[in-house]
């Protein structure tokens, strides 16, 4: 037995990818949080993500050294991209409530999400749907980031899960 699984959540932000690097990093704080959370995972990591999220996961896993044999999962997902007038999907009045509920669930160790409403609110949640199927008995181990700097809700979180 290798102990409980370690699970980290990061957002699928394409600005994290090296091919989109500018001279200044617009997501420096988010990047640092992602590195910290991913560095907490074990050597072998299962990625739970949509195709774009998988590219972000692959980059982060390549960028951060990891140790140990803990079963590990990297979930890529984020909240609504319709949180403000300047947000990519403009303002949807339901976004704040959706993200608040989803964030509260995540803190309580639940990956449950309304995928239909998520699609309407431009929330990328496929990684959470996959995590809900794969993982159970999860307890929050830390929140590295919780903010919406561009009108998109990002979380970087860690859990330990029984299965």
């Amino acid at each position: 037995m290798t102990g409980p699984a370690r699970v980290a959540l990061v957002p699928g932000v394409l600005a994290l990818l090296p091919e989109h690097a500018g001279l200044d990093d617009p997501v420096a704080a988010l990047r640092a949080a992602c590195h910290a959370a991913v560095g907490w995972l074990g050597r072998d990591v299962t990625v739970l993500a949509d195709p774009q999220g998988a590219r972000v996961a692959a980059h982060l896993l390549g960028a951060v050294g990891r140790e140990g044999d803990a079963p590990s999962y990297l979930v890529v997902a984020n909240g609504s991209a319709r949180r403000s007038e300047k947000a990519p999907g403009h303002l949807d009045g339901r976004a704040a409530g959706f993200d608040a509920a989803l964030g509260a669930g995540l803190r309580a160790g639940s990956f449950e999400v309304d995928a239909d409403l998520a699609a309407e609110l431009w929330a990328s949640v496929e990684g959470l749907v996959l995590a809900g199927r794969e993982l159970g008995g999860c307890r929050l181990a830390g929140v590295d980031y919780d903010d919406d700097p561009f009108g998109v809700q990002y979380w970087v979180m860690r859990w330990t899960c029984e299965s």
Partner: peptide
């Protein structure tokens, strides 16, 4: 030959 100063449009 030079990256943009700060690029986030469409990449959030």
């Amino acid at each position: 030959r030079r990256p943009p100063r700060r690029a986030i449009r469409g990449l959030q």
